[in-house]
Write a protein that binds this DNA or RNA. Structure first.
Lengths: 104, 104
DNA sequence: TCCATTGTACGAGCCCGGTCGAAAATCGGC
DNA sequence: GCCGATTTTCGACCGGGCTCGTACAATGGA
């Protein structure tokens, strides 16, 4: 049953530039964002990143709570997508600029 | 005399998105960047921010070494400007997106 | 029902970075 | 040369965040 707990996402007006920049400033999270941008949507586990699962949960939470990504549960997994519309409306050009950066 | 020491700035191709995002992610540094964007150029000391001089020096160095600002000495002071051309060329839209954000 | 898969919660360790004060350096003016 | 103004350097403190392992929860299939 579970009362659903409903994955907290900030509404658009509560997304703050400081939080978004801080979320994007971590190398692991930046890789996650790039992967989502490339594939449209991805599950949490599909990327092989050099961190443990619990650390990964931490990073996805930072991205979600800062307003960068949206997470929706699908079966036992979670599907992540970028909040492009919200980010583009609030900080036009920011996301595209970040994604345009060379990826060594 | 002093052999000049010449304030190290990264050349364009060495500016990395990770460094830029990390530099912009700090509230004090974001205020500095906004102030420079508003006034074109400012000296280090003209802003009254809630931190000490030595902390301010630290923040200006982070901004300079990440490639966000350019510093040139003028008398006993230093004048700071945004590296707009470089940032716009590398990450088109990023700076404008950041500056477009509401400033609570 | 049992189990594998996926992700979360919790507690802990640890390093990085923001912060400061005091002392030194740089520069211009007198 | 001397002084004041501006900024830097240095050492230190400390809190936060990235990290992990273990244990737990939730879901869906066999």
């Amino acid at each position: 049953m579970s009362t659903a707990t409903a994955l907290e996402h900030p509404i658009r007006k509560d997304i703050r530039i400081e939080g978004v920049l801080q979320a994007l400033a971590d190398p692991v999270r930046l890789r996650i964002v790039r992967a989502i941008a490339d594939h449209g949507e991805i599950a949490c586990g599909v990327l092989d990143l050099p961190v443990s699962k619990s650390t990964l949960t931490h990073h996805y939470r930072v991205l979600r709570e800062s307003g960068v990504i949206h997470q929706r549960p699908v079966g036992t997994s979670k599907v992540n997508s970028l909040r492009r519309e919200d980010l583009d409306a609030l900080f036009p050009g920011l996301l595209d600029g970040v994604l345009a950066a060379p990826r060594d």
